[in-house]
Design a protein around this nucleic acid. Structure first.
Length: 570
DNA sequence: GCCGTTTTCGGCCCGACTGTTTTCAGTCG
């Protein structure tokens, strides 16, 4: 059972209990536990099977630890079954409609006997909903609008896809008269792999009606809410954008508040409470006295913490580290000396080797591993032994004429179904490094898939496992592997795992990066560029690595070329 | 239900906006 499935059960339990009017703090406990499980880098099922004590995890006490154990062992959550016997499970789906919470859902159930989405559809059609106390025409219309798109879960946009819209809005807001600071906060600033909405923060003098101008921007499709300090719109492309306007004296506090995550904020406020302080989006207050708020650093200072980089604000131990002053010194773009996974027109890339080398040099990189697909690549067009051999000679000649950058001879070697590599060992041995990957047979099953990767690493010419999970965000689920076994196998054999920077891959993801660090395994940050522009995708790999607490030393391509090649020698 | 440099009991983040109301509950982030 996957972590997401376990978390979903507890979220559903929390929903139904909330509809029943149970103790709100007990409900929150189940939600907190669900969030904790969902964000965990290890599979909870594996921890249970290894006999580990789950109650040592934050937000998970003895009771929930036991419930999880039973859930993993039997696939059942008896309490949820009991609750569902008296409160229909579908009410949890109904509650997901924006604007409907526990109280309104409970009213629908109690007064109109609604047990399912179908019931709700009928009640809306017969205009029964608007008659309920606390409901009205608008609420009924809101439900009517939401019902047809109830099925698909919330749609999140890839971070990289949201970037152009975010940047354009920031530029437009900055040009408004009287606006001083504008920044995108939220999960965008935390560099999460996808964003559900954009949270934009602006400071302006009070007499400038920033919100009024914002909701009239061309790209706005629908105005959801519109107040003096806060407005929510949906852009014509479907992306939701919240704008919050605060005075500049509150900028830091508002940035903290609006950047989140929610779990981080709650924990931060709890720390403030202990010091008899109150943190809100306007500042840090002791009684009526403002103690801080202009900068983020002030806010963290006020509760005895060092400033926390936004990418770490997920309540995964960063506040404790900030208190002790031992937050990681995160790897930066300047630390990266090369890119170890790129394609050119010699393979399925768009630009020539020369152009790729030039573009990489322009970005300040010292080396670039050229990794054309090999013959086993299922989409075709891969290089066979003979072609790769010629390709290597060409790279040697090219290097003689290059200034400031060195091309490393490599290949995107295909890992076959049985875990063998698709080129002769003698040829692989002549490469500077190999970047090996799976592009087929994704559904082998956990044990075989894991063995396949470990077997591939048994080959002494294996260096880097590219996009280990093979997921495509929103399009293809990750392959089923025991990542811990794969990472430990890599560590034992002197192999490395990639963090692939393609916006829809981001693979390893942030949690897996953290797991690698905990195991002592280093990773390679790569763009997997298929054209010169894509070389910038390296920063997406960097973002996820930073979210995974990685430091310069945890990343192999922060090394000089000589040091890197030495590190790769097995 | 979880948690503990005041506590194993008694707390549990905080404010804006909407819709349905005549002063505020519910929902959201």
């Amino acid at each position: 059972m996957e972590n997401a499935a376990i978390a979903d059960r507890f979220d559903r339990l929390a929903d139904l209990l909330e509809i029943e009017g149970a103790n709100p703090f007990r409900i929150r406990a189940y939600r907190n536990a669900a969030a904790r499980v969902r964000a965990l880098s290890r599979r909870v099922a594996d921890l249970v099977n290894a006999g580990e004590d789950l109650s040592e995890l934050p937000d998970i006490g003895r009771d929930i630890a036991e419930k999880i154990r039973v859930l993993v062992d039997t696939g059942r959550l008896p309490l949820l079954e009991e609750v569902e016997s008296r409160t229909p499970a579908e009410l949890s789906d109904i509650m997901r409609i924006k604007g409907l919470g526990a109280k309104k859902t409970a009213a629908l159930h109690e007064h109109l006997g609604i047990k399912s989405v179908a019931d709700l559809k009928r009640a809306v059609a017969e205009h029964q909903v608007r008659e309920l106390s606390g409901f009205g025409e608008k609420t009924e219309q809101l439900i009517a609008d939401a019902l047809p798109r109830l099925e698909p879960a919330e749609k999140r946009m890839l971070l990289a896809d949201a970037e152009p819209f975010a940047e354009a809005l920031v530029e437009k807001l900055k040009k408004l008269k009287g606006v001083s600071q504008v920044a995108v906060a939220g999960s965008y600033r935390r560099r999460r792999e996808t964003v559900g909405d954009l949270d934009i923060l602006a400071t302006a003098s009070p007499k400038v009606r920033v919100s009024d101008q914002f909701v009239k921007f061309d790209e706005v499709g629908q105005v959801v809410s519109h107040g003096e300090t806060r407005s929510t719109v949906v852009l014509k492309n479907g992306l939701q954008v919240d704008l919050r306007v605060v005075p500049s004296v509150s900028y830091g506090a508002a940035m903290v508040y609006f950047t989140g995550s929610k779990a981080h904020n709650i924990e931060l406020r709890r720390l403030a409470q202990k010091r008899r302080l109150k943190i809100n989006e306007y500042g840090v207050f002791g009684g009526d006295e403002r103690r801080a708020g202009k900068t983020e650093k002030q806010v963290y200072d006020s509760v005895g913490l060092t400033w926390v980089d936004p990418v770490l604000r997920e309540n995964r131990g960063e506040l404790e580290a900030a208190r002790k002053g031992n937050l990681p010194k995160l790897v930066t773009m300047r630390d990266l000396r090369g890119d170890l996974h790129v394609h050119s027109s010699a393979g399925d890339g768009r630009d020539s080797l020369e152009a790729m080398a030039g573009a990489a040099a322009k970005r300040g990189l010292d080396y670039l591993a050229v990794t054309e697909h090999t013959a086993g690549f299922p989409a075709g067009g891969g290089l066979d032994a003979k072609a790769l051999s010629k390709h290597m000679d060409r790279i040697d000649r090219l290097n003689d004429g290059l200034e400031g950058i060195v091309l490393l001879k490599s290949a995107g070697v295909e890992i076959l179904e049985d875990g063998s590599l698709d080129l002769p060992d003698e040829l692989l041995a002549r490469l500077d490094l190999t970047v090996c990957a799976v592009h087929a047979h994704f559904g082998l099953g956990r044990r075989r898939q894991t063995e396949r990767l470990v077997r591939a690493m048994d080959n002494p010419n294996f260096n880097i496992l590219a996009h280990p999970s093979c997921r495509l965000i929103g399009r293809r689920e990750p392959v089923d592997i025991d990542l811990e076994i794969v990472m430990k196998a890599a560590l034992e054999r002197g192999c490395y795992l990639e963090v692939n920077g393609q916006p829809s891959r981001l693979d390893l993801d942030d949690n897996a990066c953290r797991m690698a660090k905990e195991l002592g395994l280093k990773v390679a940050l790569c763009s997997d560029a298929h054209g010169t522009d894509d070389l910038d995708d390296l920063r997406h790999a960097l973002d996820q690595a930073r979210r995974g607490w990685l430091e310069k030393d945890d990343v192999i391509n922060t090394r000089s070329r000589t040091a890197l090649l030495k590190l790769l020698r097995r």
